[in-house]
């Protein structure tokens, strides 16, 4: 098999699915964050692969640059929230943050 577009898309799919499963099943707040990073990264692989193997051109690469930067911003805010959560509840288990449930 050659390293064609399909292979890259499959790798992107593996990362995306792992990220989604990680977000859905993990109870540690920071592990959920890691899942988000994996999802974004899987999307990035697809963007760059399309940019190389189709006529989309450099747009794919530029979009992936934006995704990387925005992921950094998202991680900073989400970490601040996670640390606040930890300070208020003395745990990072997000299942315990159910005060809004009433």
């Amino acid at each position: 098999m050659d390293a064609s577009l399909t292979n890259y898309l499959l790798i992107g799919a593996v990362m995306f699915v792992c990220g989604v499963v990680c977000m859905a099943t993990k109870r540690n707040g920071i592990a959920v964050l890691m899942g988000v990073e994996l999802v974004l990264n899987g999307a990035n692989v697809n963007f760059v692969a399309f940019s190389r193997h189709t006529s989309l051109g450099l747009d794919g690469q530029i979009v992936s640059l934006f995704v990387i930067v925005l992921a950094a911003a998202e991680a900073a805010v989400a970490l601040a929230i996670a640390l606040n959560f930890y300070n208020n509840y003395q745990t990072i288990d997000i299942d315990r943050g159910d005060k809004l449930q009433g």
Partner: peptide, 26 residues
């Protein structure tokens, strides 16, 4: 490998060197 060296360097600098360090810090 996809000829996207700038994106790759950004990935290393911002994602691995910045975001993930932040995450590990958390």
């Amino acid at each position: 490998l996809l000829d996207a060296d700038f994106v790759a360097a950004t990935q290393l600098l911002v994602y691995v060197g910045g975001t993930l360090v932040l995450l590990i810090f958390g």
